[in-house]
Simulated scan of single mutants.
Amino acid sequence: MKITILCVGKIKEKYFNMGIDEYSKRLSRYCKLEIIEVSDEKTPDNASMAEELQIKKKEGERLLKYIKDGAYVITLAIEGKEVTSVELSEKIEKLGISSESHIIFIIGGSLGLDEAVLKSGDYSLSFSKMTFPHQMMRMILLEQIYRAYRIIHNQPYHK
C-alpha cells in the first residue's frame, strides 16, 4: 500500500520534524510513505472572508495537481466523520483488501481546505471538533496511521 500525506506548508519546528521522522520510519515496514508539501499563502492579519477564500483556492489548486487518478482521497476537515483508531484501521484494511493501492490524506493550511479539494475527496475525516495547527496535525495523522497498521497486524501498541 502506498500512502501519501499531501499537505500545505513546511514544518518549521524541529520537535514536529523529529516526531514526523520517527513515525515515518516506523511506518516504512508497513507501507510506502510519501509526504508532499505545497507552499502556503501568507494570510494577512484581519483578512476578509473574500481574501481567505482566495487563499484557500490558491492552496487548493496546488493540492489538486497532486491527486492521482485511482487513488483513494481522504480529506481532513472539522466537518468530516469522527472515527476511533480501530475504525480507521478497519477503513485502511478494507481499502487494501478492495485493491485500493494508494491512499492520499490531505491536510489543508491554517484556513482549512478549499471546497474544490473537499469535493475531490472520497471520504472526509475529522480528528476532533477542535482546531489543531496543521503542522501538529501531520504528526498526529502519521501516529494514527502507524497505530492503524499495528492494529491491523495484531501487534501491541501503547494506549
Rank of each mutant, 00 (worst) to 15 (best):
residue 19 G to V: 08
residue 52 E to T: 07
residue 82 E to T: 06
residue 25 K to E: 11
residue 71 A to R: 05
residue 61 E to H: 11
residue 50 A to G: 04
residue 25 K to C: 02
residue 6 L to G: 03
residue 52 E to M: 13
residue 73 V to I: 14
residue 40 D to N: 15
residue 123 Y to C: 02
residue 40 D to V: 06
residue 94 K to E: 14
residue 48 S to F: 07
residue 119 K to W: 02
residue 65 K to V: 04
residue 3 I to H: 07
residue 98 S to D: 11
residue 33 L to E: 03
residue 110 S to D: 02
residue 62 R to L: 10
residue 30 Y to E: 01
residue 52 E to H: 05
residue 60 G to K: 03
residue 51 E to Y: 06
residue 3 I to W: 00
residue 107 I to H: 05
residue 121 G to P: 03
residue 157 Y to G: 10
residue 105 F to S: 08
residue 39 S to T: 02
residue 148 A to I: 10
residue 135 Q to A: 08
residue 93 E to P: 00
residue 56 K to R: 14
residue 113 L to K: 07
residue 107 I to M: 03
residue 63 L to Q: 07
residue 149 Y to K: 04
residue 41 E to R: 08
residue 79 E to G: 09
residue 10 K to M: 03
residue 126 S to Q: 03
residue 73 V to K: 08
residue 9 G to D: 09
residue 96 G to K: 08
residue 52 E to Q: 14
residue 75 T to A: 15
residue 116 A to V: 12
residue 113 L to W: 00
residue 68 K to C: 15
residue 125 L to P: 10
residue 1 M to Y: 14
residue 73 V to Q: 00
residue 81 K to T: 11
residue 44 P to D: 04
residue 120 S to N: 12
residue 119 K to F: 01
residue 142 L to W: 07
residue 63 L to W: 10
residue 21 D to S: 15
residue 85 S to C: 11
residue 38 V to N: 08
residue 96 G to S: 13
residue 52 E to I: 12
residue 107 I to T: 03
residue 120 S to L: 01
residue 86 V to P: 01
residue 31 C to D: 03
residue 59 E to H: 03
residue 30 Y to M: 08
residue 17 N to S: 15
residue 10 K to F: 06
residue 47 A to R: 05
residue 23 Y to M: 05
residue 52 E to L: 15
residue 117 V to G: 08
residue 27 L to C: 04
residue 59 E to K: 10
residue 77 A to P: 01
residue 3 I to G: 11
residue 31 C to E: 09
residue 144 Q to K: 12
residue 69 D to V: 01
residue 132 F to W: 12
residue 6 L to R: 13
residue 118 L to K: 15
residue 72 Y to F: 15
residue 89 S to W: 09
residue 15 Y to S: 14
residue 97 I to T: 08
residue 68 K to W: 00
residue 130 M to H: 06
residue 17 N to I: 04
residue 27 L to S: 12
residue 51 E to L: 13
residue 131 T to G: 09
residue 47 A to H: 06
residue 17 N to L: 11
residue 142 L to F: 09
residue 88 L to T: 04
residue 111 L to C: 07
residue 120 S to K: 14
residue 55 I to D: 05
residue 138 R to P: 03
residue 31 C to G: 05
residue 41 E to N: 11
